[in-house]
Design a protein around this nucleic acid. Structure first.
Lengths: 200, 200, 200, 200
DNA sequence: AATGAATGAGGCTTCATTCAT
DNA sequence: AATGAATGAAGCCTCATTCAT
């Protein structure tokens, strides 16, 4: 079964990550066995340990992918042109849309964070903090510009908002009546409103 | 073995619940072994299985306690006298204060919900829904009264706010600079603000 | 709740033995827990350990009762008057009838014998041997008298017959079409027939 | 690790089945721990659970092997040529010889049947019934042919005889004075005699 | 005569991981 | 690149029994 030498992708590796993500989201990291993952991916344990050093490693890679994606999107929107209120609104919307489009990742994120090895845990926390800081800077920028209320610490506004976003995994369903865009708009409106600014 | 009338020792059952709560919050339900729980409570496994049918049962009882407490507090504040905006503000503050006072319970709540037996899971979801509904009614009442913006579904406002509350377990620390009251005030302000109303 | 000082029976003890017999027959000695027995008898563990030294002791008492009953019946029939063939036939019938009337005892007998403490086990085996020997003597008596074939050791005839009797617990049901008397007659006929003698 | 071509070591699976059979026969299914089985087979528990789904599964496989063997032998003898009385005699002898050659299987059969999962239990009962029916057909054939007495249901004759056979495990010892052949001849003689027919 | 809390040993099973091939 | 047999540690739970009352 010869493969093209050019388009060498690693379907096995990708399948393993995909199934692991799905299963971790569905039943949690601790309640998912390596056996279940490899069975879902249609391979054997040996194959998994060929591509990943451990079950923890799988989780670690998922976190890496999520963090990279989130940061990339956030940066793109936050660094755009335009008034800060509009940028924050657009960014908040995109955060929700991205989360909804990768709901499994979101479900895994906080629920399984503690299962990471201490080293990895620290790295993820730090990366996540940078993510929050970029968002916080946007809020602070608006406060300094006088378009947002200043009596609430920007840091807390961020925790307030991202709490809501993280919670999406608990109630949002793509089969429900609302699209990610719609939820995003509402959430962004609520955020701007809570900052004493109305954009829409 | 007569008991000292003064040092009424904590009953075993209570100690088990307390230690289980602490450990589940600290490292998760799945990552906490029964052995660790009974060791922390200073009893043997047999004693635990005398009081609780299973490890799941322990978790179940914790949920029962949490739900009862939350509902009781919410009802008390929501049913008070006064303008709806003030009642919502006070209720929101109390939700935060209660959560912060029982941060371990909060950490356990969403993270370990999926480990409940399907039957129990349903019961907990239903009870939690009733809780949300009572809060939502307050928001809807204000919308009908014309004091809150009406272009966002009350249901979504509730999910938005409780997401933030649930997230507290992730970042709030009683040793930090802010008291539960302070965070509560900020959160309530943000909530009211997001509804287009300013109370403080 | 004063009791008559005269008719002091011990209903608890009796209930415990009865329920234990039923449960041991139904699911085996090892698969029946003390908890199940006392629950069925409507008492607590403490009560059971008041009357019986151990779970093994319960089993032991059941064996004692069975052995006593069997030996008593066998002796009565074997020692009666009349031709040996008639006595063997009547005895064999009675063995079957008695077994069928106490089918639970029969189910327990061989299945749980190995669970007895070595000491008790020996005693039961010895008592059972005496039982067999009395039956064997009857066969041998008939062989010496020339009414039974002599080319098969009496001992083996006894094992052959009691195997069939013990097996009753596996297939006989009091709700089935045959009474214990009927099965007894057939079995006795088969036994006599196998000895080359026809009585009915 | 190349294998010597001479001492082809018993595969782990086979060793486990062999030791389990021996131990179940010796002390019963419930009183034999998985630990004892794997220790006897010289492997670890993990190895056992690699080959068998559970302790019950081990028992199930033993039953499968026994049933297959019994049916195969019975069919071969029952379907042979010759007068029905001779065929029944030969078959009965072979049943005894086979039982004695696999005495451990026989000891396990009835004693541990109840420990099988309900599903498996039914299957085994059904298979066993087919086995009995083949034997019963032989008896009925002789009755219709007029060579066996007809006043006792063939079904009962079968239960009578197989009771004796099953009981062998209780008293027969390969170290005793009688060979399996000898016991088989006696048992077959007794069976034929009980049917009013003398063959030897 | 009887309770019920508590023990401690042991039972079955799961699981992440390794290793020779 | 991938297999699958095997390990060893750990997990949850059951159970006969004891003991103070």
């Amino acid at each position: 079964m010869a493969r093209s030498a050019v388009t060498v992708e690693e379907p096995v590796r990708r399948r393993l990550l995909a199934e692991a993500t799905r299963l971790f989201a569905e039943r949690g990291f601790e309640s998912t066995s390596v056996q279940e993952i490899v069975a879902a991916a249609g391979v054997t344990k040996g194959a998994m340990y060929h591509y990943f050093g451990s079950k923890d490693d799988l989780l670690h890679e998922i976190y890496g992918r999520v963090l990279r994606l989130q940061m990339e999107r956030l940066t793109r929107f936050a660094d755009a042109e335009g008034p800060v209120a509009e940028r924050l609104h657009a960014t908040a919307m995109d955060v929700v849309v991205t989360t909804v489009e990768n709901l499994d990742d979101s479900k895994i994120f906080f629920r399984s964070m503690h299962q990471l090895a201490p080293e990895t845990y620290k790295t993820v926390r730090a990366e996540r903090r940078r993510y929050h800081e970029r968002f916080r800077d946007l809020v602070a920028e608006g406060q300094r510009a006088g378009v947002f209320r200043e009596d609430i610490p920007a840091e807390m506004v961020v925790d307030f908002f991202f709490g809501s976003v993280h919670h999406l995994g608990t109630w949002y369903s793509p089969d429900g009546p609302l699209s990610g865009q719609e939820v995003g708009r509402h959430f962004a409106d609520l955020l701007l409103g809570s900052l004493g600014h109305s954009i829409s």
